[in-house]
């Protein structure tokens, strides 16, 4: 039977070793299956966070051969036979154990976002074309792969100034909602730090839900921020029209 050659990080709190494991390959197998095989047959203490195993919950984020992805979606048959498959925890968030990282920062950020605020007295007649954009953002499964790959958080560690792509998506979903009445543009510019994003699109590349994070969420937010803060000519015309 064909065997896969896995090299998995084992250890706690940023310190450990890469251990090699030979795992028999079954048809249609994904890397998460291989980790489960290790868990059930070699070492029950190997830690991996997972839930649905169907790319719907976004729990099993890790890095396979350096690429951030969901372990449940990483098919084993895309590797060369005998290729060493390196599996690491995600880098951007504090390491807990083996493949598990502490992503609680994201939950703290989420709390800062002004929640959905419907226009008072709205009749809730809302057409499909008005919410289709928002529906794309609602596909987010909060795997935080985009947060992990974003260099602002990953390499520059600017968690103090930038909410990260996941929350740009959330903010875009709220700002573009046809019934929402809150204005979050100052937050988008200041606290959320949309200006830190240099639109290098890695978030879009790793998104397992194929959300066009950069093109459909971040750039439109940047443009809305321009409307509000960087476009004096349009502002001038708007104020003239309003004055009339």
């Amino acid at each position: 039977m064909a065997e896969a050659n896995l090299k998995v990080f084992r250890g706690e709190k940023d310190s450990g070793t890469f251990e090699n494991y030979k795992v028999p390959i079954e048809e249609g197998m994904v890397v998460l299956d291989a980790i489960h095989y290790i868990q059930q047959n070699m070492d029950p203490t190997i830690a991996v966070r997972w839930n649905c195993k169907a790319a719907k919950c976004g729990s099993c984020s890790a890095e396979v051969n350096g690429k951030p992805q969901l372990l449940c979606k990483s098919r084993m048959d895309k590797f060369e036979p005998g290729e060493e498959i390196t599996v690491q925890p995600i880098k951007t968030f504090p390491h807990v154990k083996d493949l598990v990282a502490d992503v609680s920062w994201n939950y703290e950020v989420n709390k800062k976002i002004v929640p959905f605020t419907p226009q008072p007295g709205h009749n809730w007649v809302v057409y499909q074309e008005d919410i289709e954009r928002v529906q794309e953002f609602r596909k987010c499964i909060e795997c935080f792969l985009c947060q992990n790959v974003c260099h602002v958080l990953r390499d520059h560690n600017r968690k103090d100034g930038f909410y990260g792509p996941r929350f740009m998506v959330r903010l875009a979903g709220l700002e573009m909602h046809p019934v929402d009445s809150a204005n979050r543009l100052k937050m988008v510019k200041e606290d959320a730090g949309v200006g830190f994003c240099n639109i290098t699109k890695c978030c879009t590349e790793v998104c397992p839900e194929d959300i066009h994070i950069t093109d459909n969420a971040i750039i439109p937010l940047k443009e809305r921020v321009v409307d509000e803060f960087y476009d004096p000519i349009a502002k001038f015309f708007k104020s003239v029209f309003k004055a009339k």
Binding site: E12, P44, T45, A47, K97, D98
Partner: peptide, 11 residues
């Protein structure tokens, strides 16, 4: 089970 209590799925 063996190992530590830190994220120990076997436990």
């Amino acid at each position: 089970t063996k190992g530590s209590k830190t994220y120990n799925p076997g436990w």
